[in-house]
């Protein structure tokens, strides 16, 4: 209604011609914001999940083994009679927050290395970039399996094993942005006014590359989550009895025939979480690329 009203005065006409493109842009933005809110809600819920589980996720019950889903046990019970629904809820915190911790750590390390390489260049840059080249050219999951296998199965070791290679993509991205930014006139004028390198890096370079770096990070969440779940599934990550989606699937696998819900409930939880993060990452990427 408001649109038709403004069309009548001539000044609003060019705005109407642009409206289709603008509308698309706004829709994209709205989608990203809605998804962002959903992601936030999921994060908060998963953080507090251990406090509102219907049953104790670690209490085994020999009289209720491998029960199919019922009103009391929404997703049934596993081979030890533990409530699968409660375990999926409790596992959300481990699975999601382990992923976020890894993404944030590799983001920080990779960005720091990338900025330093891009800004200073020289021998350090050469050596570090050759290392990223090599790490990027290796099969990451195989390397992670070997590292986790040799260090021994635990959540920390799994994170280290994936982290060995995961910082490289951030480093490369940060480096290329830094190299572009450092040749811009305003950085030169900063130097002229006598700003220190640290000041330039933190106040002028970092804020200008943080956007694309964050977009890259949101796109990485899904893949990282799959890697951690994969390692746990192979018995190289979170060890049972701890509730974590990957290790729950692994634990339920021998009972695939008798109690398929012990396998599919946590596996579908991973699928939904990864889909949500991928969708969020893609829409953030769309908005960022459009501006």
């Amino acid at each position: 209604m408001a649109a038709t009203a403004t069309v009548k005065n001539g000044a609003a006409k060019p705005a109407k011609q642009l409206s289709k493109k603008q509308l698309k842009k706004l829709k994209m933005k709205r989608k990203a914001i809605i998804l962002g809110i959903i992601v936030l809600v999921v994060l908060i819920l998963s953080f507090f999940a251990p406090y509102f589980v219907p049953n104790d996720p670690y209490a085994s019950n020999p009289t209720m083994m491998k029960q199919p889903p019922s009103a009391q046990f929404w997703f049934g019970t596993d081979h030890l009679g533990r409530c699968v629904f409660s375990r999926v809820l409790a596992g959300a915190r481990t699975s999601i927050f382990a992923t976020l911790v890894l993404v944030i750590i590799s983001f920080i390390i990779g960005t720091a290395i990338g900025i330093i390489c891009g800004y200073y260049g020289g021998a350090v840059d050469n050596i570090l970039m050759r290392i990223t080249d090599i790490l990027l050219s290796l099969p990451q999951m195989v390397l992670a399996i070997a590292v986790a296998g040799i260090l021994g199965g635990s959540l920390t070791n799994a994170l280290i094993a994936i982290g060995v290679t995961s910082w490289t993509s951030y480093a490369r991205l940060a480096r290329s942005h830094t190299m572009r930014i450092k040749n811009l006139p305003y950085i030169n004028s900063c130097r002229l006014t006598g700003s220190s390198d640290i000041n330039i890096l933190f106040h002028h370079v970092l804020p200008n590359l943080i956007g694309p770096m964050l977009v890259n990070a949101t796109l990485e969440i899904g893949t990282t989550m799959l890697s951690i779940a994969g390692l746990s599934f192979l018995g190289l990550g979170v060890a049972p009895p701890a509730a974590e989606w990957g290790s729950m699937v692994s634990e339920g696998r021998p009972y695939l025939q008798l109690a398929p819900w012990t396998v599919f409930a946590p596996a579908v939880a991973i699928l939904i979480a990864v889909m949500l993060f991928n969708y969020f990452g893609e829409s953030v990427c769309d908005v960022a690329n459009d501006v």
Partner: peptide
């Protein structure tokens, strides 16, 4: 394709195994 992209590979394997072997 969006779902296929986000599926953990053990879910696909176990799903196929459940459907076609069991």
């Amino acid at each position: 394709t969006f779902i296929g992209n986000a599926m953990p590979n053990f879910l696909i394997s176990l799903l196929l195994m459940y459907l076609f072997c069991i």
